[in-house]
């Protein structure tokens, strides 16, 4: 009994450790991938940062969101797509949309997909800081808020199954919504992005404010998702963790065909 409990805490340690490593490497990968231009050295909250943010905004965002971030109505006559107002969008929204590569939008589709990130960490921070000045909106989670050390994975699972699985699937693999829209997979989302998505409600996702799902709830929930990412498939191949359809597909292809191949071998004439 004693041995087992040690093993469990050890496993939890590994789980958390690897979660943190994963997050770290995730950040490293993201920022490594996305620094074509030299990193401009600007201090957070400084005037330079705001100026850089405004400049980047004017270059990359204003064509859809308006020069003052006031939004542009879609123009059916010219085929212009327009974009929503960013006044009150807050830094969390900008950070989420740009750090997941969803913005800037390349082609208007049913839904903006996750893509390669176009800006560096610092540039994103600058744009977020600038948009935050347009009107009060949701702020990025603090480091303390994102500290998952004391999170309870099991409680997070309860919150996940009550609020998230209906769209993102039981393992966070994503799922379909109406008219070609979808809830994306959570397997590439960082804890910060999950937090930002919950408080800003990007695209069709509803908002889960800090008053309904508290900081502690969010930490538990994110810890559960992080655990899902590293949770092994004890039974073997996971088949994408999308449920019985993949199992049926495997059965009818690899499974049944291999048995039929054996039957053909049995029936074949020997020379």
């Amino acid at each position: 009994m004693k041995k087992r409990s040690r093993r469990r805490s050890f496993a939890a340690g590994i789980l958390m450790g690897s979660a943190l490593i994963l997050v770290g490497t995730g950040y490293a990968v993201v920022s490594a991938e996305t620094t074509p231009s030299p990193e401009p050295a600007v201090a957070a909250g400084s005037l330079e940062q705001l100026q850089l943010g405004r400049q980047l905004f004017l270059e990359g965002c204003s064509s859809c969101h308006g020069l003052q971030g006031e939004g542009i109505a879609a123009d059916n006559a010219t085929g212009g797509n327009g974009g929503p107002s960013l006044i009150g969008a807050g830094e969390a929204s900008v950070d989420f949309q740009v750090s997941t590569g969803r913005m800037p939008l390349a082609v208007p589709e049913a839904q903006a997909p996750r893509k390669d990130v176009q800006y560096s960490q610092a540039e994103i921070a600058a744009m977020a800081a600038y948009v935050a000045t347009l009107g009060p909106g949701p702020a990025n989670p603090t480091e303390e808020q994102l500290n998952l050390e004391n999170a309870n994975i099991a409680e997070g699972g309860e919150i996940f199954r009550t609020n998230c699985t209906q769209c993102h699937n039981f393992a966070g693999s994503g799922g379909a919504l109406t008219n070609g829209q979808y809830a994306p997979s959570l397997m590439n989302a960082t804890p910060e992005q999950i937090w930002q998505a919950m408080i800003t409600g990007p695209q069709q996702m509803p908002v889960f404010s800090n008053e309904t799902i508290t900081d502690e709830d969010k930490q538990n929930l994110i810890a559960y998702v992080e655990a899902l990412k590293v949770e092994p498939n004890p039974g073997g191949l996971g088949l994408g963790r999308i449920g019985p359809v993949a199992e049926g597909l495997f059965l009818w292809t690899a499974g049944l065909l291999s048995l039929i191949a054996f039957a053909v071998w049995i029936g074949a004439k020997v020379r």
Binding site: Q166, N233, P244, E247
Partner: peptide
């Protein structure tokens, strides 16, 4: 031994007010 089937631990326990995307029966 090689391929997972019905990973019930991922689905979680049943309660009548929870549901998952991709709720499907066996084939």
């Amino acid at each position: 031994g090689l391929v997972t089937i019905n990973p019930i631990w991922l689905y979680g326990p049943y309660t009548p007010d929870q549901v998952t995307a991709g709720s499907q029966p066996d084939w």
